[in-house]
Nucleic acid binder design. Structure first.
Lengths: 328, 328
DNA sequence: CTGAAAGCGCTTACAG
DNA sequence: CTGAAAGCGCTTACAG
């Protein structure tokens, strides 16, 4: 059961491979008799012909695969939703997206050379060397970054703004002593550092004391230790900005264990609006991200990179907002 | 900046492409002078040569890519961990795993023909037609399934056993009226149906009344409605087996809203041991899965499929156990 | 021990 | 309007 090739279709249709190729690719500028066209099409269909991507890629140096490189992050509902949107939107444009989880330290080059994608979509930033190597090989590089950056072509999800938004929400409710709950998982450091930076900056801007930072593991004991740290100084924190909702839930459990009421004694705000945020006691106030808008922007960027005639998209703004619930 | 090919390496080394190929692939059975070998190797290194996978694939009809097909499921920490393990373990064997999120309804054939992977690893089952087409094309198909199945070569994560384990745990604590909390997200139906089937079967085996099933959305109102349903009959449920931890957390919030104590009035058990399960009030009892063992088994299956000399692995057993916390 | 040549399946200038 | 031929980069029988 050998593979069906264009030669088979040509033979069966009584035409040359050239014609088959013209017909199947709806080649512009060549005119093929309607009868021939139909015959080729139906033969291809009947034989179950699908072009060999390997051959096509070898020929053109370009495939219709988009390689999405995921850094060594933990994948929660947010990234999951992003990938979901990216996959379906790219599929609408005839592109298949494959996700590579960059957990190992294999050189990235090995992978993209192997796959020969038409574009590589980096959810985290690439090293300059990697990016250059890909561009030289004719692969479009679309990256996103975690904060402002000299490259205007790179999509930015300004993580710092998230921290700023958390502080703004808390300060508007009269809190002055704001603490920060950092994640214990190092894979999150890239995000955590930037969000914290935003928290610190906004506190400074508002003349609030610098936030006391504690690492919070996802267990009650760790959260209790953090809570004690926050409450022990001469100006005990009355509000906690947490790295994300999971950390915020840990903080909630620590507060509960210490007999503190939320939000009366201490207010808590998370990030992500994970499904269980609204189920917490009390329901968790959090920062929501417009993942669909981010996905659409990235897809549009890929399409623009692939085709000069397509305009690069406008950056979406207003991709965050606070969802106020009962914990603040 | 054209691509560096084996011809470039050959020219620079003063040998033929044949020799370059032999050296670089450490071809068994041919002897190459050590001097030549070293020269070729260093030239390749210096030029930054990486073979074109497209050409190699075209030539051999086989790539070193493993395509992992993810059905339209929601990806939580469990699947995330599974993919993580699969990626790193396959990388250790020189295989790159790419994940395809089968959200759209594009025919699978388009994808695997485009990628020409050496193996396709299905996390859900393939249709028989898809599986046959792939095998015919010489692609190894390794699938996993959700329950027992006529195909012994397919890995099975017996979802029904999870349900059985939940009931066993609850029944041993004296519960007779056991309710079931099903998820509202249809993408989970494949799992949910099987787990429920296990719950029903185990109740029957123990002579317990059939469980009252309520769909529970991930919000308090929905959970409250479910709780009322379970508590209204003439034999009010004293225990709830939930589809997974998220649903269990919703149940917890519904119970709380109704003023019922856990576990005194109603016990709750989930599945997955998500990070926030231990943070709930009370900490959630749940069923844990040995994801690493499942991943290792799948990787070993892929390797065995790829190489006749490699023995297929033994199925891991004992991949589940109950983690008892405070909600039961 | 090493090289010349064929061929994997495709697309596309170039002829007719 | 259609076909013969070249070439993408690789590997491997087959010679020498």
């Amino acid at each position: 059961m050998a593979r069906v090739t264009s030669a088979d279709v040509a033979r069966e249709s009584g035409v040359s491979r050239t014609t088959v190729s013209y017909v199947l690719n709806a080649k512009h500028g060549v005119t093929i008799t309607e009868a021939t066209r139909l015959r080729v099409l139906s033969t291809a269909e009947r034989l179950g012909y699908t072009p060999s991507a390997a051959a096509r890629t070898l020929r053109s140096g370009r495939s219709d695969l988009v390689l999405c490189v995921l850094p060594n992050w933990t994948v929660g509902p947010v990234i999951d939703a992003l990938i979901d949107h990216l996959t379906t939107e790219l599929a609408d444009h005839g592109l298949s997206m494959l996700v590579y989880n960059g957990r190992s330290n294999r050189p990235l080059a090995e992978l993209w050379r192997a796959v020969t994608p038409c574009a590589v979509l980096g959810l985290g930033a690439f090293t300059e060397a990697d990016a250059q190597a890909m561009r030289r090989a004719g692969i479009q590089v679309v990256g996103s970054a975690l904060d402002e950056d000299p490259h205007p072509e790179i999509f930015v999800v300004p993580q710092a703004n998230i921290g700023g938004l958390q502080v703004e929400h808390l300060a508007e409710r009269g809190h002055r002593a704001i603490a920060y709950a950092a994640p214990a998982d190092d894979r999150l450091a890239a995000f955590a550092d930037r969000r914290l930076r935003g928290v610190v900056a906004e506190c400074e801007r508002r003349g609030l004391p610098a936030p006391v930072v504690e690492r919070v593991d996802l267990d009650v004991a760790s959260a209790v230790a953090a809570v004690r740290g926050w409450r022990s100084g001469d100006e005990p924190a009355t509000a906690v900005a947490a790295y994300n909702d999971e950390v915020a839930l840990a903080v909630l459990s620590g507060l509960r264990a210490e007999g503190l009421r939320v939000p009366e004694d201490v207010a808590v705000i998370g990030v992500d609006d994970i499904p269980t945020a609204r189920l917490a006691a009390p329901a968790l106030t959090t920062v929501w991200q417009a993942i669909d808008a981010q996905a659409s922007y990235l897809v549009a960027s890929v399409l623009a990179a692939l085709d000069e005639n397509v305009e690069p998209p406008q950056r979406p703004d207003d991709v965050f907002h606070v969802i106020e619930r009962d914990s603040t």
